[in-house]
């Protein structure tokens, strides 16, 4: 039974026809061309599909698309504003916080949620918060470092160190 789903995607309203068993990940990737969120497992385990739903991190692969009706979804595509990279994107890039990059979109979204909740996390808090995002290339140290430098204000939007 097809239905129309309307929600806010990266700040703009979208309307799309979906079926009840389609997940948010299916709809983003296959119907809306938003392929930043990745399908690493479809099982909730890997974190590559992580997006923010009303500001909170969720697995888009475990989210039935119709349940996001009227809500706000933010993907990696919505992180940069007016062409400017988000501080986390800059830090991930400059600190080499990935190798293959497949985990990166999910990592960035979890990291954003972390800093939104806790702008100055300790190393342990970073490790705990990021524990649901797997990086098989093993870039964990650089990921933690990138989050730490953003928390320290290194890439503050005003530019430069604070």
């Amino acid at each position: 039974m097809k239905q129309i789903l309307s929600f806010i995607l990266n700040g703009s309203p979208v309307d799309v026809i979906v079926t009840p068993t389609e997940t948010l990940l299916d709809v983003l990737r296959e119907k809306l061309g938003v392929t930043g969120p990745k399908r690493g497992c479809d099982d909730g385990d890997c974190g590559t599909c992580t997006v923010l739903l009303d500001g909170e991190p969720v697995r888009s692969c475990l989210t039935i698309a119709l349940t996001v009706a009227g809500r706000e979804v933010l993907t990696v595509e919505g992180l940069s504003t007016d062409g400017d990279l988000h501080p986390l994107q800059k830090a991930f890039h400059e600190h080499g916080a990935f190798q293959c990059g497949f985990c990166t979109p999910g990592m960035l979204m979890s990291a954003k949620a972390l800093l939104d909740h806790n702008p100055t996390p300790s190393r342990t808090e970073i490790r705990e918060y990021m524990s649901g995002n797997l990086c098989r290339c093993g870039s964990y140290e650089e990921i933690i470092e990138a989050i730490q430098v953003v928390a320290a204000g290194e890439y503050a939007p005003s530019g430069g160190k604070e």
């Binding site: 989210t63 979890s110 524990s131 995002n133």
Partner: peptide, 9 residues
């Protein structure tokens, strides 16, 4: 329980 993105839902 799980990790943050599991606990939110």
């Amino acid at each position: 329980h799980g990790s943050p993105a599991i606990r939110t839902k």
